[in-house]
Design a protein around this nucleic acid. Structure first.
Length: 416
RNA sequence: GUGGGCGUAGCUCAGACGGCAGAGCACCGGGUUGUGGCCCCGGCGGUCGCGGGUUCAAGUCCCGUCGCUCACCCCA
């Protein structure tokens, strides 16, 4: 529509009945988090730009060209969060939530912002469910976090999907590996344009290239796993063993590198079929060095993010369609409408979902509306019923109806 | 940032050759002086994305522009 104000590029309205599906996903996630001892954090959507620049990495695409960054009225550079982990760590350190023993477990959910070209499964405002476990480098925590992720995905009935895992090693392993990879790539010809550039700037990314041609060249490239130090190798082996013990099927994916600089050791991703090019519905990994990077203590941590928009894309259509018992009150005439309004509130206070129409509409029109709203029962209240005190209660699915005393109606409905 | 596809009613879409803007769905009303879904009849609803050009005449042809969408890249 010309002249009408529209949502801006990459942003969208999520409307009923879609919102019901979103609620189903979020409550499933909340239940699973509670089961695993996680507590919710509610965080600002805006942070100082520096927080993201320092955590995610200057050379990543996110920081280099995808952030919504602007000066506030005092000229300070602020940024709409492109991901949640940095904010979580900032909040944890700022509020001393890392103090005291044990693993600190938090979740948070809400919108993230990245200035990218939108396409299927990729929006400029998108939603994530984030999980972060801080304070332990134990492989059991890695396994637990992945088990939790799988639990959530199971609860929302995610269909065909694959869990990919890899270990990126510690910084020492990564230095050695980059050297080895660089050596391997140095005399390789025929890499795609991007990979030739990445060969110097970020050699790990070359591994992730989707071009079949590059993949062919990289077939016998060195593999990260061969460069892991004994500690990292042991850690990874233990994580995989635990996953197997609990029946989680995974695929070791030596090429999996992930896009944020802060990842160390365990990295994982869940990809779903049916999503087109943007098929990662969840991703995560360990980020042992990040807290220190942000000026905090040595605080090993691991977490994941679920891409809600993408997840919803592949979940069942009918997810979260409640079978709620709803009652519609059809009233005929001013007197009956007035009485019905009172009844409406009485029913609601009894915990029975009830609706009516306040207009002067025919019974036929009101029945039709009841049908459209999915009412399980319709109560008919006209002049006749006002006189006798007996209303008609109609069961919509079958068309059966019976007379019920107005005064008994709340009780009768509650019992159905 | 780079490519392809598409913009006509609230939604999904028809509109060869330029010649009075259409259908289905949805919504409202009627067929039933008080009974939903199916069926029938009627109605509401459009600056044809926007701007310019050609023409007696443009949804249709030409130029520009904006937007949407899919893909590359990257990521959730």
């Amino acid at each position: 529509m010309a002249g009408k104000i529209k949502a801006i590029r990459g942003m969208r309205d999520i409307l009923p009945p879609e919102t019901g599906r979103w609620q189903a996903v979020e409550s499933a996630a909340r239940e699973a988090f509670a089961l695993y001892g996680y507590r919710e954090l509610r965080l600002p959507l805006i942070e100082r730009t520096e927080l993201f620049a320092r955590s995610i990495g200057q050379d990543t695409d996110i920081v280099a060209k995808e952030m919504y960054t602007f000066p506030d009225r005092h000229g300070e550079s602020l940024t709409l969060r492109p991901e949640a982990t940095a904010s979580v760590l900032r909040a944890v350190l700022e509020n001393g939530l890392d103090k005291g023993g044990g693993v600190k477990k938090f979740y948070t959910l809400g919108p993230m912002f990245r200035y990218e070209r939108p396409q299927k499964g990729r929006y400029r405002q998108f939603y994530q469910i984030n999980c972060e476990a801080l304070g332990s480098d134990a492989p059991e925590v890695d396994a637990e976090v992945i088990l939790l992720l799988m639990e959530i995905l199971k609860r929302v009935q995610l269909g065909a999907s694959r869990l990919l895992v890899n270990s990126l090693g510690c910084p020492e392993c990564q230095v050695k590996f980059k050297a080895g990879l660089g050596l391997f790539l140095i005399n390789k010809e025929g890499l795609c344009e991007d990979c030739q550039r990445r060969r110097n700037s970020n050699p790990l990314r070359v591994l992730d290239c989707k071009s079949i041609h590059c993949r062919e060249i990289l077939k016998d490239a060195p593999v990260l796993r061969d460069y892991l130090c004994p500690d990292c190798a042991g850690h990874f082996t233990r994580v995989l063993a635990l996953l197997s013990r609990f029946g989680v099927t995974y695929e070791e994916q030596p090429r999996l590198v992930r896009g944020l600089d802060y990842y160390t050791r365990t990295a994982f991703e869940v990809v779903a079929v049916g999503l087109g090019a943007q098929d990662a519905v969840a991703g995560g990994g360990r980020y042992n060095g990040l807290a220190k990077e942000l000026g905090g203590p040595d605080l090993p941590a691991i977490g994941f993010a679920i891409g809600e928009d993408r997840l919803l894309e592949v979940l069942p259509e009918n997810l979260g369609q409640g079978d709620g018992k709803k009652v519609f009150l059809a009233a005929l005439g001013p007197g009956a409408r007035d009485k019905a309004f009172s009844l409406l509130q009485t029913l609601r206070q009894e915990g029975i979902a009830a609706e009516m129409d306040f207009g002067e509409r025919s019974l036929k029109a009101q029945m039709s509306q009841a049908d459209r709203l999915g009412a399980a029962y319709t109560v008919i209240l006209g002049e006749r019923e006002l006189e006798t005190g007996q209303v008609v209660l109609r069961r919509m699915a079958t068309g059966d109806q019976q007379q019920v005393a107005l005064s008994l109606l709340p009780m009768v409905l509650a019992g159905l």
